[in-house]
Amino acid sequence: MEIIGIVGILIMGVVIGLLGSGGSIITLPVLVYAFGMPPLLATTYSLIIVGVTSSFGAISYIIKKEYDIKIALLFAIPSLVIIFLTRSYLMPMVPETINWGTHVNISKSNLIMLLFGIFMVAAFYSMITSNVHNYKQTDTDKHLGFIPFEGGLVGFITGITGAGGGFLIIPSLVIANKTPIKTAVGTSLLIISINSIIGFVSDINSIHIDWIKIISYSIFSIIGVTIGSRFNHLISPVKLKSLFSWFILLMGIAIIYKEVITHQSIH
């Protein structure tokens, strides 16, 4: 399982390099199911690993000037506020066991994984229904008012599940804000980097961190993002997006099935 986990982390980096998003969709299940990490701790580890990886992935877009700092700030500031409030106040308020009626008791860890599975299904729908158009920057400027609301929503999802939200950020920027796709990808990586690292910092005093694991996992993810960045121009983005969309749908269904249908952790 350790080898499977390392391969999963490597694949996560490749996916970020190719698509500019999708890191946490792979990282959280790998940490929980391959490395046997408790879900709450895994969300913290996922935040820093994805944050570091996205930062490296963003470098090539920054060099090519394929990013929009105005969008990144409008998105990131409300997102950061919501992440901080969610991680610092909301999540500690959630009891370790939640009683729904007389027959269903769900643990906090199971709730996190269930929400993550639902998030993956939502990410599939977001990706599979989005159409990529070659918008101009002037189109984006007309729709900047939506961005803070989108940032708050993604911040809430990031705070609860440890997911960077790239598969929600990119479609929202492209569809709702008419942002050119390459600019959306580069900007998404910047936003994910900021959100993930701030989310991790908010947890650092409350959870014991194994820095050796963090560094070793991050090294493999950085190798992956380097590989993905070098080959992203060789694969059709449309085909890659479609394949990965179905992949995350299957993973989301598998997680929901494991946590609910099998009743392995819900009593």
Score class of each variant (00 low, 15 high):
residue 235 I to A: 02
residue 174 V to S: 10
residue 90 L to V: 14
residue 204 I to F: 10
residue 63 I to M: 12
residue 158 T to C: 09
residue 260 V to A: 12
residue 76 A to Y: 05
residue 139 D to S: 14
residue 10 L to K: 03
residue 188 S to R: 14
residue 109 S to E: 15
residue 71 I to E: 01
residue 169 I to W: 09
residue 227 I to F: 00
residue 144 L to H: 09
residue 206 S to T: 14
residue 222 I to S: 02
residue 11 I to S: 06
residue 253 I to P: 05
residue 131 N to V: 12
residue 229 S to K: 08
residue 265 S to N: 15
residue 187 T to S: 15
residue 128 I to M: 10
residue 69 I to E: 10
residue 96 E to N: 12
residue 262 T to V: 09
residue 165 G to W: 07
residue 185 V to R: 01
residue 215 I to L: 14
residue 76 A to R: 13
residue 227 I to K: 00
residue 56 F to D: 07
residue 104 V to M: 12
residue 208 H to A: 08
residue 11 I to C: 06
residue 104 V to P: 00
residue 29 P to C: 04
residue 118 I to S: 03
residue 135 Y to T: 00
residue 168 L to G: 02
residue 154 V to R: 00
residue 17 G to H: 01
residue 113 M to H: 12
residue 157 I to N: 10
residue 209 I to G: 12
residue 264 Q to C: 01
residue 214 I to A: 11
residue 204 I to M: 10
residue 228 G to R: 01
residue 136 K to N: 10
residue 258 K to I: 03
residue 165 G to H: 08
residue 90 L to G: 06
residue 137 Q to M: 13
residue 89 Y to K: 13
residue 63 I to D: 04
residue 119 F to V: 09
residue 259 E to W: 13
residue 231 F to M: 03
residue 114 L to R: 01
residue 16 I to Y: 13
residue 207 I to K: 15
